[in-house]
């Protein structure tokens, strides 16, 4: 007799029957385990939430009054018949892979992850398992990320050139995670660092948890742009070109995302400059993460699922595609990647 699988893939999301909980569910459920605080993973309306100590504050900030508990990385708890622990995913500060063990069989739902150490997020930790659920946002061999220091140099060179030309540099990035990673890559000697409200709110929460970020100044409505010559402004892409941004006068715009690796998308989306930097794993990163788990059974979700799945099956893994509610490859999602 075959046993029901430890995790199953339902219309509401990934479900663990042994513990009667969901991982990153799409619709309201009684109990949700959350990998990280991005809006497509931490959704409103759950009965109770469980997330890492680093993720819960941002969830409370975004979701308001929720019933939730937090847990430290590596701490093992029992939920029903399942043993559950959270391990660093390296995606954004506080992000986690969730390890679920039932009767000696180990599953890992990795959420979004990257394996390079960005100096801010807790670095990705390989978790040995039998079944591994992986994203494939950038699951094509054309995606290869350069060293973070190389991209940092590109951004700082661009910012310096903008400053020298009397222009304000606007760098668009997702307000939670990517924005703070970029902040940590900037050279504060070049000029003042200003932030959009959405970014500054995330900064405040993360600083409160002890993450170190360079000094920033909130570019609120009463800030006088001409008092901050040579500034760089970190903002969500949607704020670029807005009335708020136009107050800064002459400016150049840049956009930081893994999608900027593709010239066509860069030309469509980037404004003046595109910088290739992502909080998701590149092709080699995905493969090395999968190898390090030792898992034989892989479940592929988000992004180039069909292609990545086919490659895995051709190369000795038992792999299948898991349908998802969030389409990782849509143009709208380019902002988060």
């Amino acid at each position: 007799m075959t046993r029901a699988p430890i995790l199953s893939f339902t219309d509401k999301g990934i479900y663990c029957a042994a513990g009667d909980f969901y991982v990153d569910p799409w619709y309201p459920v009684a109990r949700a385990l959350i990998t990280h605080g991005h809006a497509d993973h931490a959704r409103p309306g759950m009965g109770t939430y469980l997330a890492t100590d680093g993720t819960l504050p941002i969830m409370r900030h975004r979701l308001g009054d929720i019933s939730a508990e937090s847990i430290a990385y590596g701490q093992v708890i029992r939920i029903g018949d399942a043993q559950v622990s959270f391990h660093p995913a390296g995606h954004v500060p506080g992000s986690a892979q969730i390890r679920i063990e039932v009767g000696g069989e180990i599953w890992v739902a990795s959420g979004d992850y990257k394996i390079t150490d960005d100096g801010l997020s807790e670095p990705f930790e390989p978790v040995p398992c039998h079944h591994f659920i992986t994203e494939s946002t950038f699951g094509l061999p054309v995606f290869r990320w350069a060293e973070q220091a190389t991209v940092a140099a590109e951004i700082n060179t661009w910012w310096s050139a903008c400053a020298a030309a009397g222009k304000t540099a606007f760098l668009g990035a997702y307000a939670l995670g990517k924005a703070q990673r970029l902040l940590s890559m900037l050279d504060p000697d070049i000029g003042p660092i200003l932030t959009h409200t959405a970014v500054e709110n995330s900064n405040r929460v993360l600083r409160g948890q002890g993450y170190t970020l360079p000094a920033t100044r909130h570019a609120s409505a009463d800030l006088i742009p001409k008092n901050h010559p040579g500034a760089i402004v970190i903002c969500p892409p949607s704020a670029m070109g807005s009335t708020w941004a136009r107050r800064f006068g002459p400016q150049e715009t840049g956009f930081a995302s893994g999608w900027m690796a593709i010239r066509g998308i860069r030309r469509r989306r980037a404004g003046d400059r595109g910088f290739v930097i992502s909080d998701h794993a590149d092709w080699e990163g995905l493969l090395s993460a999968i190898k390090q788990t030792g898992a034989e059974n892989i479940y592929v979700t988000h992004g180039y699922t069909d292609i990545f799945n086919k490659y895995l099956n051709e190369n000795g893994w038992q792999s299948r595609v898991i349908p998802t509610q969030f389409e990782g490859e849509t143009a709208g999602a380019e902002e988060q990647a």
């Binding site: 094509l140 061999p141 054309v142 995606f143 350069a146 690796a261 010239r263 066509g264 180039y304 292609i307």
Partner: peptide, 29 residues
């Protein structure tokens, strides 16, 4: 040179949309 099967190169090309660029991206840095 990239060490990938031809179908994977073709699928990548279909997404990148430019042969010269696909080759540049898929080869090791």
């Amino acid at each position: 040179v990239a060490g990938v099967p031809l179908w994977l190169f073709e699928d990548s090309y279909a997404i990148v949309g430019d042969l010269a660029e696909t080759i540049s991206l898929i080869l090791p840095a």
